[in-house]
Design a protein around this nucleic acid. Sequence first.
RNA 1: GCUGAUGUAGCUCAGUCGGUAGAGCACUUCCUUGGUAAGGAAGAGGUCAUCGGUUCAAGUCCGAUCAUCAGCUCCA
Length: 647
Amino acid sequence: MIVTLPDGSERSYPSGVTGLEIAASIGKKLTQAALAITIDGKLRDLDAPVTANASVSIVTFDSAEGKEIFWHSSSHLMAHAIEELFDGAKFGAGPAIEQGFYYDIACEHRFNEDDLRQIEAKMLEISTRDLVITREEMPREQAIDYFANTRKDPYKVEILEDTLKEVATVSVYHQDGFADLCSGPHLPSTGKVKAVLLTNISSSYWRGDSSRETMQRIYGITFPSDKLLKEHVARLDEARKRDHRKLGAELGLFMLTPEVGSGLPIWLPNGAIIRNELETFLKGEQRKRGYVPVYTPHIGNIELYKRSGHYPYYSDSQFPPLTYKDETGREEQYLLKPMNCPHHHLIYSSSLRSYRELPIRLTEFGTVYRHEQSGELNGLVRARGFTQDDSHIYCRPDQLVDEICNAIDLTRFVFNTLGFDDVETRLSLHDPENLAKYGGTVEVWEQAEKDVKEAADRMGIKYFIGIGEASFYGPKIDFIVRDAIGRKWQLGTVQVDYVMPERFDLTYIGSDGQKHRPVVIHRAPFGSMERFIGVLIEHTAGNFPLWLAPVQAVVLPIAEDVHGYAREVWQKLHEAGIRAELDLRSEKIGKKIREAEVSKIPCMLVIGRNEQEAGEVSLRRHRKGDEGSFGVDELIAKLREEIDRRS
RNA sequence: GCUGAUGUAGCUCAGUCGGUAGAGCACUUCCUUGGUAAGGAAGAGGUCAUCGGUUCAAGUCCGAUCAUCAGCUCCA
């Protein structure tokens, strides 16, 4: 029997050889590291026999599959430990996740931090017992009986009776007295787990359904060595330093205070500079691309949102209406604007439109207010008041795909300029199982999704499909990036809408002299200024490119005798439109430099007697160090160019 | 909204068994005038998140509220 290894080499083995035996025949290290195998691409336990010619690879912790198996087995190990420590704990779902694993547990006992340390110790103890993990296949009916009567775990029974009701044979993994329903594969033994960190306890709903009971979810991560755990902890520390909430306070970018309200960020001067630069950048780019600016009020009559359909769909996540009564008792209700589109639609229909003037691209940095659930609020990335770089493009059906492409192109240009290279793109389509969620007809959705796909394909973007991620009025292309701790956030978006034109009876006069329905594209490359800047802070760790830095340069005179010259240099920078500060304190140059470095100011202009005599400045760049001396005008031209290039 | 945790000076944190509140950094003043990541001294700074309760006495114990954090649920 011939086995082909990943490097293309072929080896012959007797039929029935196991993954472990293959690994052993290759090397001692690999035998140690082996967690599972793939046989013709299919993951199997390490003791699974290979019975025919096949391509085989040994799965280790270094691969994504290896980590998943390792962490999935670790969730079983944790459940095993909890079962030994706490009587009556019942287990729900316990999968591997991107960074570790969790298990949902139903238990009378409320778990706390001390319990986590105790469970960690028990897990390591079970690991040292090096229990063999074995797979047992059984008919589903037998498994139901086993989990109902032997394991007495009602959650596993529910999974067997519901989720797995079509499956005839299921597998159960055993390790000593512990057993779990699982398709596998798993580690060969518990001894592979050498380092354990249980990170937090939270709650979850059984099967993610808020009408079902809540369970306690314990998150953790494990590694095959202490060294890898230490590296992981170091990465977490690094991520914490990049947290935009921490950096936002340290760098004076924004603040949040209950005196204003939860989820309502205040932009401090330094943060306002960044936001303003980004707005100027996008406005300039949009002017080139034929957008026209508009402004609309922060509140609007509630009837407007009833008409758009937003109010009934999202009434639970809006601030309650403001009610106004005049002397005659007539009542009017206003809503804090939860989105900008209805206003823009009214602008469109404020005059008769000809097919010749389409597409019309209305743009506004529109501030909106949404009453997000309190538990969802998160610094700038999830706020209750935020500003969208919102535009609506009104076009003819024959222009639609081109316009979507233009919007994608603009979004990509924005992301490239800001250095986001790790962006995922999702085609957010509707869920045919849940049509009640959406407006419009089936035909309209089919057309819209076809157009979106065509545009995405034409632009050559790599995307994945998100069923059920569409908004109620149309499919979207969403651009998603990760924050410092790996959470994903949607930033830019391009959305097609055939529904609003109907609701607002938007029309244009075609070449045939008849009224026609335009199509609307909603698009926002930044998405929300707040969220975008929040993610940008984490992405850059607060080390903004020169064009965005709140303070671009600081002039640092070494002693008082050059203060006059330092002031001249500062004045020239200021006149050249460079945001510069002048540090005239009687501190040593080392201290001034340290403080500028800590404040992440990109350019430090050190000035002493030598520079004064030569009419120069000595340039030190943030995190780079001394870059030598330049003539003042030469330096200003150099910085000016870097700023204007936005590099 | 739900579950859990947290809340002491501008920031980071200490505060024992319930007995009148502490450090470092930052800040202010003074001294110091220096060459690429912290010069020295002094001073000022607190309704211990808020409200209520227990107690002779509460930062400390109990309850409620608010906010924040992690996760769940939601996201136009």
